[in-house]
Design a binder for these strands. Structure first.
Lengths: 219, 219, 219, 219
DNA sequence: TATGAATGAGGTTTCATTCAT
DNA sequence: TATGAATGAAACCTCATTCAT
């Protein structure tokens, strides 16, 4: 890690020039492997994914993978971690609540849908659902880092909504899952049934929020 | 094991035991294989399941599987069909709507939760979510036989609820998924996070129905 | 084992005809694998031996090896056992001592040399010396089954020789290894240095016995 | 580690430290590699030894090995030579025979046992026995430099003993191997069977010499 | 000269599928 | 029909060797 700064301290300005010492290139390779592995694992699941294909897609030799990961299982586990970390960072960087709770949730969930539905991120969720039971450590990590935090955040918002009188159903605070449920369903729906019956996730979200907050009077 | 007596059971007359003829025994074997395969596929996923284990669990020889199924893929596909058929039959045999729509849904969904959450049937749902993208024919079949019918049924109930004034949110009829969402979430939640935070699916369902129908006045 | 007699009880006389039911053929295959593995392990040592070559030499597919042995290590261990067992049987079937102790030892050791020096059996000894430290279980087995028994037998003979006045050096009974040493040396010598300086093991044995029993008066 | 100071030690004058110039450091590295390789080859045999481990143990990078040796095989061959050379030097520097032949042999063999049994040198003997057949050049070298010289020396001693009347068995001169045999056996015994039955090599040697020279009258 | 990341051939092992019995 | 031994393609993983730095 500290090595990155060692051999070629970048000389100050000028920058762009060599652009790649050993450590940098190693990190790039690792990233390429993570990228490629994500694609393959999502497309085929853990067991059916071949390291050969990951290597080919990442543009490295098979052996190179083993310089970065102990074996296929560890690769899968670390990979999920690696991909999830920025998501967590995002969650933590949420702006403080201003405006109505409904607007807040609508904005947040809207963004979520836009960034998740039909994207690789969404597929990652499905991958975790699919492989979780075989990779308890992955499920645990996902629960700890994403689910439990997300739940806590939702609960806080719901309580705020109740306090402000926007939400009437007081028991909702006990089940923040209800708030998330349609989004989850949308994610799964898209990857399984999109070609039979596409789903307008944003509109469905609006209807769902109407159930919770009551229908909008004017908008 | 008992097989010693199996080989020529009808040695006596010609039709002495019509119930236990070749066709029946074959069907029994096929059932045993289906049962065993379900368990294994659910426990390990398609790719990681070994035919050896299925055969062992079913108490047949490995070769026997190939007398009933063309290959592993076909077995998986047929198997999902086989298991789903009774579910569909159930859906079709629903009693005509009597009483309030809410009671109807509550009863139905309550039963559903009881029979699905934490049972092999629930795992089947997760299995389809997991393997669907690799088995479009499975996803298609599931959509056609279960999802689309379920959706249609839900939509009909919702429209009835709207007509009777039990449901205020008219747009809900466009998204019957919202009605199902918490149940789906509960299924997935149980298999991934039950040990971190068990979920009272029945109670969550009640809260969700309160959102849709309004809180119960007396009960 | 008992299966060998099951399916085709050989019909009485006639014999030669089918000659090979399933169990028999399996045993033949196993033998072929053991034979081939011996050759390869002796020629290259454990680590450098390829299962591919063993399979090829045995005339079976690579996978077949795994029907008989758990993995390469177990194969090596079981193989040494398999090959050593008849040797042990031989040792146990030695005739009771008649004639002079010297004649007895000379005959026995002579036969030993004839059957071991320059044969695969001799190479097995070298193999055990070579791989023993990496396969304690093999060394243990060899010590228990062959070495300790051989030592005990030698000691008994030496004590008999001392009692009869044929052997003067009483302490020899404490080191039966001395009796064996030249034979062992001969085995190793042949496989390492034969082409530089062939060794007449039988004659060397005679000289060694002269040291122990005194030179023969007439012969 | 300490390497930080290594890079330019002679920065001062031009010949400030002639002892620690490039050539010397290279030789030191080569020695470290030889040492480390010996340990590893002895512990695992040729094929199972990894250059990675040798490099790690020697404290150099893997690539450095290739600056000193062409490849793994050459390294093994050169290494045996390197380690054996001092042994040969020792043999050549033996003091001229004074005192009785028995004392001479007893002293020499006693020292040999002390320095070889249970030491790395003894393991080297076993290593050569183990790998010799796969490395004829090693066996040849060992025969030429050590065995044949040792044999010649032993033979001279035996002839001296016969001439002086200390040894009665005249044919012994044809088989100096007999003199060495117990020592060889002891070496092998220790590395294979020490934990089952430790062997007092010095005492066994004494008994063996008693056989050759006759029991000591007084001592 | 020294490094160690990268390579890829080659090894062990697994497992879906076949087929003689 | 049923069996299960046998097959061999293909997977994962290792490690001697190379080469840019």
């Amino acid at each position: 890690m500290a090595k990155a700064a060692t051999h070629k301290p970048e000389a100050g300005g000028e920058a762009s020039a060599p652009a790649s010492n050993r450590a940098t290139r190693a990190a790039e390779r690792r990233n390429a492997i993570v990228e490629a592995a994500m694609e393959e694992f999502i497309a085929r699941g853990f067991a059916a994914t071949r390291l050969d294909d990951i290597a080919k897609r990442a543009g490295v030799a098979k052996g190179t993978i083993y310089l970065h990961f102990k074996d296929k299982e560890s690769m899968f586990e670390e990979l999920v971690r690696t991909v999830i970390v920025p998501v967590v960072a995002r969650l933590n960087a949420l702006p403080p609540p201003t405006g109505s709770v409904r607007d807040l949730i609508e904005t947040f969930a809207g963004n979520f849908l836009k960034e998740v539905i039909g994207t690789r991120r969404g597929d990652l969720v499905r991958l975790i659902v699919a492989e979780g039971p075989r990779f308890p450590s992955v499920a645990d990590f996902y629960y700890r880092e994403v689910v439990s935090r997300g739940m806590a955040g939702m609960r806080a918002l719901i309580e705020l909504g109740i306090a402000r009188g926007e939400i009437r159903e007081k028991d909702l605070a006990r089940y923040p899952q209800i708030l998330i449920a349609p989004a989850m369903i949308a994610v799964i729906w898209q990857s399984l049934f999109a070609r039979h019956a596409p789903l307008d996730a944003q509109d469905m979200l609006r209807v769902h929020l109407d159930l919770i907050f009551g229908e909008r009077s004017t908008t």
